[in-house]
Simulated assay, not measured.
Amino acid sequence: MWKEYYHAPGMYDFDYSLRRLSMDPLIRINSKERWVDVPVRLENDKVVVRVKAEGTTEKPVFSVMSDHDENQDVIFEHIRNIFQWDKDLDEVHQFFQQSELSMLFHQYQGTPIVRDFNLYDSLMKVIIHQQLNMKFAFTLSTRFVQKYGEEVDGSWFYPEPETVAKLNYEDLRELQFSQRKAEYVIDTSKKIVDGDLDLQEISKLPTEDVMKRLGKVRGIGPWTVENWLLFALGRDDLFPAADIGIQNALKKWWQMDKKPSKDDVEKKAEEWTPYRSYAALTLWRSIED
């Protein structure tokens, strides 16, 4: 067993991150003890890493621990990137104090962007979740992972792309996937296995290039790419203006009788560059509460 500590540079509301992560029934969390178990793929192994809050939102300290004694530096770097501990959220807070969202950012200080645990897993999840209500979306992704993935020390790992690429569409139809969604999940996995889609390479591209590359894949539209950019890559400046939750949050904030249009939302969001992702997450949080 090894254990390391990390002190974040600014405010960090880890308890909110746990609440958001707890929406996914596949993720093992203890909100009272303030920890989450993160499944981590290494080159030849699968390990579970426990991340625990040891401090407060104002003075955030985290511990990272695992029974896996090898590759400690690699594991710790991976965890640090997932939770984006190097991002100084005080700077984000100060930026929005000069905006019309200042009161929201005052109310929800230190709201971080926590990345999904794996690039492929995240893409599968957003493809499965697109155009579904949240409850059924998580039902489908849970069935998918528990049927074809692997449980290690109480935590679930998504199936490998090689496993999914070998499935028949009917295999997923039996889990209540639509025909098209089954095709999108399996065909995208085949592209990854065949080397036609390199998620690691794509993750390093500018946002607009990611939109173009992933947008060419059948079944992956703008909503899916935006969510992958935000939650798989943790990009700072993403604003899904067509998202219904965002529109409802702005309707409430602007005290409108009906939801604002996508164009109006996009135009207003330009004022929140280069931190539009934090605006989006804080707006979502305002209606979640």
Score class of each variant (00 low, 15 high):
Leu119Gln: 05
Ile128Phe: 02
Ser66Pro: 05
Asp69Thr: 09
Lys251Trp: 10
Pro240Ser: 12
Asn118Lys: 03
Gly149Pro: 01
Trp223Leu: 15
Leu104Cys: 11
Lys259His: 04
Asp236Trp: 13
Gln179Trp: 05
Asp88Ala: 14
Tyr169Ile: 12
Val49Cys: 08
Arg285Glu: 11
Leu140Phe: 02
Tyr158Leu: 03
Leu167Cys: 09
Val49Leu: 13
Glu77Ile: 01
Trp228Ser: 05
Glu270His: 03
Trp228Tyr: 15
Lys259Trp: 01
Gly154Val: 04
Gln84Thr: 10
Gly154Lys: 07
Asp198Gly: 05
Leu101Thr: 03
Leu119Val: 06
Ala137Gln: 14
Glu33Lys: 10
Ala241Glu: 12
Ala280Val: 06
Leu172Cys: 05
Leu123Tyr: 02
Ser203Ile: 03
Ile75Val: 11
Tyr158Trp: 15
Gln255Asn: 09
Met124His: 03
Arg276Ser: 07
Ala242Phe: 02
Val265Asp: 01
Lys191Thr: 02
Glu77Lys: 14
Ser261Glu: 12
Met256Pro: 15
Lys252Tyr: 07
Met256Asp: 10
Gln131His: 14
Asp289Ile: 11
Phe105Tyr: 14
Leu167Arg: 07
Gly149Val: 06
Glu54Pro: 01
Ile186Asp: 03
Leu205Pro: 00
Ile127Pro: 00
Val210Thr: 02
Lys32Leu: 11
Pro206Lys: 11
Ile75Arg: 01
Glu170Pro: 00
Arg28Thr: 13
Ser122Lys: 08
Ile27Ala: 14
Phe117Gln: 11
Val114Gln: 09
Leu230Ile: 12
Arg218Lys: 11
Pro222Gly: 07
Asp67Ser: 12
Arg143Leu: 07
Ser22Pro: 00
Val51Ala: 06
Leu214Arg: 00
Glu91Asp: 11
Val185Thr: 15
Glu270Trp: 04
Arg41Ser: 09
Leu140Thr: 09
Asn227Trp: 03
Lys125Pro: 01
Asp15Tyr: 02
Asp153Ser: 13
Arg80Lys: 14
Glu151Thr: 06
Asn168Arg: 08
Ser178Leu: 14
Asp196Phe: 15
Pro159Trp: 00
Leu238Glu: 15
Thr188Ser: 12
Asn44Arg: 13
Lys166Asn: 10
Leu167Asn: 06
Lys52Cys: 13
Lys52Pro: 00
Glu70Asn: 10
Pro260Ile: 11
Phe95Leu: 09
Tyr275Glu: 03
Ile75Asp: 04
Thr273Val: 12
Ile127Asn: 03
Ile113His: 00
Thr139Gln: 09
Thr188Asp: 09
Lys181Pro: 00
Glu70Pro: 03
Lys251Val: 04
Asn81Cys: 05
Lys181Glu: 07
Ile27Arg: 15
Glu226Tyr: 04
Val193Asp: 07
Met23Ala: 14
Asp73Phe: 12
Thr57Ile: 10
Gln94Cys: 06
Gln131Glu: 08
Asn71Gln: 15
Glu54Tyr: 02
Asn30Ala: 04
Thr188Ala: 08
